[in-house]
Simulated assay, not measured.
Amino acid sequence: MTDMPQAPSNELDLPYEGLPPTATADFNRDGFVHLSGVLSPETIARYEPTITAEVIRLNTQHLPLSERDTYGKAFLQIENLWQESAPAKELVFSRRLAGIAARLLGVHAVRLYHDQALYKEPGGGITPWHADQYYWPLSSDRTVTLWLPLQETGLDMGPLAFAPGSHNFSHGRDLPISDESEARLERLLAEQDFGDVVEPFALGDASFHRGWTFHHAGPNRGTAPRRVMTVIYMDADIRITEPTNEYQAIERFFPGVEAGQVADSPINPVLFDGRVA
Rank of each mutant, 00 (worst) to 15 (best):
M1F: 00
D3P: 05
P5W: 02
P5S: 07
P8G: 05
N10P: 01
E11W: 01
E17M: 12
P21M: 02
A23S: 10
D30T: 03
H34F: 12
H34R: 15
L35T: 04
V38M: 08
P41H: 11
T43A: 15
T43W: 00
A45G: 02
Y47I: 08
Y47K: 08
E48S: 05
P49T: 07
P49Q: 04
T50I: 02
T52Q: 05
T52M: 05
A53E: 11
I56H: 12
L58I: 03
Q61W: 00
L63M: 11
L65A: 11
R68I: 06
D69R: 07
Y71L: 14
F75H: 12
I78Y: 01
L81M: 09
W82K: 13
A86Y: 05
K89F: 04
E90R: 15
R96Y: 06
A98M: 11
A98E: 10
L105M: 13
L105C: 07
V107T: 10
R111W: 02
R111C: 06
D115P: 00
D115K: 05
A117F: 02
L118F: 09
Y119V: 14
K120C: 08
P122L: 10
G124L: 06
G124R: 05
I126G: 03
T127P: 01
W129C: 09
Q133M: 12
S139L: 04
R142F: 01
V144C: 15
T145D: 04
T145C: 13
W147M: 14
L148A: 07
L148Y: 00
P149I: 07
Q151E: 14
Q151K: 10
G158K: 10
P159R: 12
P159V: 14
A161P: 01
F162H: 14
P164G: 02
S166M: 10
S166H: 03
S170P: 02
G172P: 04
R173D: 02
A183L: 01
Q192R: 15
Q192A: 15
F194Q: 08
D196T: 07
E199K: 14
F201N: 06
A202I: 05
G204E: 09
S207I: 14
H209I: 12
W212N: 15
W212H: 12
F214I: 02
A217Y: 04
A217E: 04
N220Q: 13
G222M: 08
G222F: 06
G222C: 10
A224N: 08
A224Q: 13
R227D: 04
M229H: 13
I232S: 13
I232N: 13
D237K: 03
T244A: 09
N245F: 08
I250Q: 14
I250R: 10
E251Y: 01
F254G: 09
V257Y: 11
V257C: 14
G260M: 01
G260S: 00
G260C: 01
V262M: 03
V262F: 05
V262G: 01
A263M: 08
D264Q: 11
S265R: 10
P266G: 12
L271K: 08
D273A: 11
D273H: 11
G274I: 02
G274A: 13
G274L: 02
R275A: 15
